[in-house]
Design a protein around this nucleic acid. Structure first.
Length: 738
DNA sequence: TAAACCGTTGTTTTT
DNA sequence: CAACGGTTTA
């Protein structure tokens, strides 16, 4: 069984990677640590299956984000050509339900609601039920609804099982919410999964059809699957049981979306006979970065033991810096990256990562003032813009006349004199007649109780609707242009906003153009569905040579030469909400998720990693002092270098200067107190040679426990040892100089 | 009855 | 500091 000399699918793989890629039939779990070639393994496996003669259209690959799906499709196509189905869970379910949902008594032309849409519905219900908005916060209620759906708990069950007044009320909100969505013929994100499970459960013949059509199912990022996703994956593996799950429990960062660590931790129980391959060698980062990341994640208790190792050089230490406030932080980083770019570093290779979206603001200022091109990778931002939602609202309503959220969104945009009172009355009539508001508005006789002015205004809107409905366009782009013209959208925009609005519209139009090009024959429904399920904006601004700015969550799966993580403060990372009580479990669990998030961030870096924090932050406009993140204290001293940020002293107010210097003194004390000497982190118990540690020496590590040295080499002024720990396996450690 | 205005409120992460 | 909701004004 010798391989051909040049095999693009297998040649550059290591042994464990190759084993995963070529593994035969039956369930397979690949536990792949950060930077261990996870994406490579799953793509190559798919390509390998095709190479072995599995028809591509009988392979289903599922990813978490559209971007990951696109990337995988691109890579597979370059290896073995097109044909495999690569989708996200949500887009797969949407596609499936367009055909299958009539089995559940629902219409296939459903709208897909995003969180904003859903929130509007909940708000309306809270109003109708006359509930106190502080006690029954719509966002909280929606979170609860989402949690229930993620646990496959329907509204009836919740109403039945609710204990106490609050829960009963919340369950009633859920019941009405679901009812309203059904009336609007709409599904929210959770429904896409929930209904698919329901369809599989109640219609075995439908499930069978999909089980037959897919011979292999591959799921990426398995650690982030929630219960419905886990069940869908299990259902689809069918009789052949050819499921490949790839993931890393240490990168599970979506508990709030229902992700269950158990899905991957207990994989062998759910898929009996599953083969498990663990990829622990990291190819991405320098030894210092990897060491810091490993020690950090080692503080977690809820994990599947796994020790990452590397043969890379130690590289630079991890840079840790403290600043006065987020603006000083951003300014210094602005200067630093500007220097890097002068030195020839590509802006694409430097990423700014942060915990929360609002942290991008000071960074944006700093970069903009230095004319450094940057791109905020805001996952929903663009599709959440008012203008985009308006246009989408029109399209949604054209596709689904029952969609009242869409109706309410666009009926008075641009403003045509249809106000709150008119709509309230129209809703009343619609409810009484049991018809959607749009249908009611089109029925002139139903409107007799309305005033002439309101009636004329509504008639005008209906006329517009008819005109739009009868448009014949050969592309989405052309349709959108017509839509803008027919609605006279721009005319209603105030002069001073025109430029901004036009810019947003242009982006949207060019997005539509791309859609036209990529999916010829694609219809309105396909376009609206895609924009509803979109999760990242790469589609409308690719190729730009700009510094990416993004949240730690959206950084997962990416890698950069230089990574800068800002705001390493208590209350930010770990986030305040994780330190308080939370609805998912206890605080330790939430804290560990924050640590995983930090781990994800650190392991994005190939060569250089900056971790910055500030002594004050601005919270709701107020300045407040904050302490450094506990995650920084947990880092191994030998892989970290604390640097001073050297602000411009001459321009500094003496009082501010004093405060900063005092801070520095405190900081220095803390650093000295921390274990800096080799002995305190890694203690030699037995067998040390005269110049340090020798092979075979027995050692004790502060966080890994006991181990035996299996390799020693010097790396510049540092010494690197490979230690086989009894609990954690073999690990490469970097010792600080004596 | 609709649009402009103003004060209050409250900010995790995203398919 | 932005978005929302309620209040005032036209």
């Amino acid at each position: 069984m010798s391989r051909r000399r040049t095999d693009p699918i297998l040649d550059d793989l290591t042994e464990p990677q190759r084993e995963a890629v070529t593994y035969g039939e039956g369930p397979l779990l690949v536990v792949a640590g950060a930077g261990s070639g996870k994406t490579r393994v799953i793509t190559r496996r798919l390509a390998c299956l095709v190479g072995q003669g599995v028809p591509p259209d009988r392979i289903l690959a599922i990813t978490f984000t559209n971007k990951a799906a696109e990337e995988m499709r691109r890579r597979v196509e370059s290896l073995v050509g097109a044909g495999a189905t690569v989708k996200t869970f949500h887009s797969f379910c949407a596609w499936l339900l367009r055909r299958g949902i009539p089995h559940l008594g629902r219409d296939a032309g459903f709208s897909i609601y995003d969180r904003t849409d859903s929130l509007r519905v909940v708000r309306q219900i809270v109003r109708e039920m006359d509930l106190d908005r502080d006690t029954y916060q719509p966002a909280r209620l929606l979170d609860r609804i989402s949690m229930h759906k993620d646990s496959l708990e329907g509204p009836e069950q919740c109403v039945r099982e609710a204990i106490g007044f609050y829960e009963q009320t919340a369950a009633e909100v859920y019941r009405r919410y679901d009812e309203r969505l059904a009336e609007n013929n709409a599904l929210d994100f959770d429904d896409l999964l929930f209904k698919t499970v329901e369809l599989f459960r109640t219609r075995p013949e439908v499930l069978q059809q999909y089980q037959k059509s897919y011979l292999h199912v591959l799921v990426d990022e398995y650690q982030d699957t929630n219960l419905p996703q886990h069940l869908i994956a299990r259902a689809l593996q069918g009789r052949h049981r050819n499921i490949t799950a790839v993931g890393d429990p240490d990168q599970m960062i979506y508990t709030w979306r229902g992700a269950r660590l158990e899905n991957i931790l207990e994989f062998e129980e759910d898929f009996p006979g599953a083969h498990v391959i663990t990829l622990e060698r990291n190819y991405r980062s320098t030894a210092n970065i990897l060491h810091a990341a490993s020690v950090s994640i080692g503080f977690n208790t809820l994990r599947r033991q796994k020790v990452l190792w590397t043969e890379s050089a130690p590289g630079e230490p991890v840079h840790v810096l403290e600043f006065e406030d987020p603006y000083a932080e951003a300014e210094w980083l602005g200067d630093t990256v500007a220097e890097m770019f002068e030195g020839g570093v590509s802006p694409r290779e430097v990423a700014f990562l942060y915990r929360t979206k609002y942290q991008s603001l000071p960074l944006e200022d700093a970069l903009a003032s230095r004319s450094i091109p940057y791109q905020v990778v805001d996952t929903v931002g663009f599709f959440d813009r008012k203008q985009v939602k308006d246009l989408r609202g029109y399209m949604q309503l054209l596709l689904n006349s029952s969609d009242e959220e869409a109706f309410l969104r666009v009926v008075n945009v641009p403003s045509r004199g249809i106000g709150k009172k008119t709509l309230e009355r129209l809703r009343g009539i619609a409810r009484r007649d049991g018809k959607p508001m749009l249908v009611t508005a089109r029925n002139a006789s139903a409107l007799e109780e309305l005033g002439t002015r309101a009636r004329n205004a509504l008639a005008g809107f209906c006329e517009l609707y008819e005109r739009l409905a009868s448009l014949k366009c050969d592309s989405i782009f052309a349709f959108l242009k017509q839509l803008l013209r027919q609605t006279a959208y721009m005319q209603s925009v105030p002069e001073e906003d025109r430029e901004d609005v036009q810019e947003v519209l242009n982006y949207f139009l060019s997005y539509a153009k791309q859609y036209d090009r990529r999916s010829p024959g694609g219809d309105l429904l396909g376009f609206v569905e895609q924009t509803a399920l979109i999760s990242d904006v790469d589609g409308w601004n690719t190729g730009a040579s700009a510094v990416p700015l993004m949240t730690l969550h959206s950084a997962k799966g990416l890698e950069f030469d230089v990574v800068i993580i800002t705001g390493l403060n208590e209350g930010i990372l770990p986030h305040q909400r994780a330190l308080e009580e939370n609805p998912y479990g206890n605080e330790i669990y939430a804290l560990e998720e924050e640590r995983r998030l930090f781990h994800v961030g650190m392991t994005r870096a190939r060569k250089r990693l900056y971790l910055t924090h500030s002594s004050t932050r601005f919270i709701m406009g107020r300045e407040e002092s904050v302490s450094p993140s506990r995650f920084l204290q947990e880092l191994p001293q030998e892989a970290v270098q604390r640097e001073s940020s050297r602000p411009a002293l001459e321009s500094e107010d003496p009082a501010v200067q004093f405060a900063r210097q005092a801070q520095e003194v405190v900081h220095r004390k803390r650093t000295l107190r921390a274990p800096g000497r080799t002995g305190s982190v890694l203690q030699v118990v037995d067998g040390s040679a005269q110049n340090g540690i020798a092979n075979g020496a027995r050692v004790v590590h502060a966080s890994y426990g006991e181990g035996v040295v299996v390799g020693v080499e010097s790396a510049g002024k540092h010494q690197m040892v490979r230690v086989a720990f009894s609990q954690h396996g073999v690990l490469t450690l970097l010792l600080s100089a004596r």
